[in-house]
Design a protein around this nucleic acid. Sequence first.
DNA 1: ATGACTTCCTTAGGAAGA
Length: 269
Amino acid sequence: MPAIKIATFNINGIRSRIGALRHWLEREAPDVACLQELKTADESFPARELREAGYGAVWHGQKSWNGVAILARGAEPVEVRRGLPGDPDDSHSRYLEAAVHGILVGCLYLPNGNPQPGPRFDYKLAWFARLIDHAQTLFDSGHPVVLAGDYNVVPTDVDIYNPRSWRKDALLQPESREAYARLLAQGWTDALRTHYGEERIYTFWDYFRQHWQTNSGLRIDHLLLSADLAPRLRDAGVDTWVRGEDHPSDHAPAWVVLNRPAARRKRPA
DNA sequence: ATGACTTCCTTAGGAAGA
């Protein structure tokens, strides 16, 4: 494979948007797609429609809420983990990990955490701590890893149109941002921020107040690259056109293109 | 500001999202 395109997309209900999902897959042809907020039970996951679109899939669903999936174009992802370690009582379907095209892909849907303070925000921070623990294990393994998903964190004020009306929101709390910074400090590369420098780039526009029409967005969907993959980052972007379609998700897909692995050095003659 | 939109689940309105 010459290069590989990996995307993450909070679909906000896969059954109500399967047509839009297929349209996006056909037009952008990601090799790997991480999906969040399936909002459907495992038995109702539209595996047949995705197969018709040329994608194999693994999924971890839940009735009404949450739910994550990993899709692979012309391949079957090999599931290696379902759920984050560290809390056997956690009933939310928010993490799935699979090997595909020689890369270990972690697909995550981090808890929103509103309202804060409160038990939902406590759950967010506890889940984040478990993610950080697991991410350290992955990073230390030396394998090529991408951690992609809806992190529900606006990392800095550069990642939002205007922080004023969001200051009390769980997505901008110092604790949320510090947790994200702790994760990055393990050595992960935030692919879109690295690629775009200080440029404004958003992945979410809420349904209220004509925020899409005024480009009042937030960057909360992230792709983190392991040390092995960071030098292979060729391109990154957001498929903003998806947010402008009829009855869209409130998120748009974010993606990276990774160069092929460096060829092994030839033995000296 | 218990707001606004939109989904799910169910069939009128609550829960949840961010």
